[in-house]
Amino acid sequence: MARLNIGCVCGCGMGSSLLLKMLATNVLDEQKINANVDCYDSGTVPGDVNLIITSTAFYDGLKEQFNGKIPVLCIKNFSSKEEMAQKLQEAGII
């Protein structure tokens, strides 16, 4: 299977998306899943990622933009590994 590409998205691609990246990497490392996790601002998300993780503020816009082609996860609690793990599980990643 090709390596998984995950995009974490926020307004500028350097603040909350980085927090999402750290949270996701933590969970993925624990599950020994190898993935590229990168940060993007909401305007420059490439179309070739396998999964998008974002916060409430950008969720609706991204969902609309990628229109079912790429799954979009919405994380509410940035200090909860459990929420991230649960949502990654629902998306079939872990």
Binding site: S16, T56, S79
Partner: peptide
């Protein structure tokens, strides 16, 4: 307790934002 960037808190007020 981690101190997070502002957009993490946008979820508590989309209209206010």
């Amino acid at each position: 307790i981690p101190a997070f960037d502002g957009p993490v808190f946008f979820q508590y007020g989309n209209t206010s934002l």
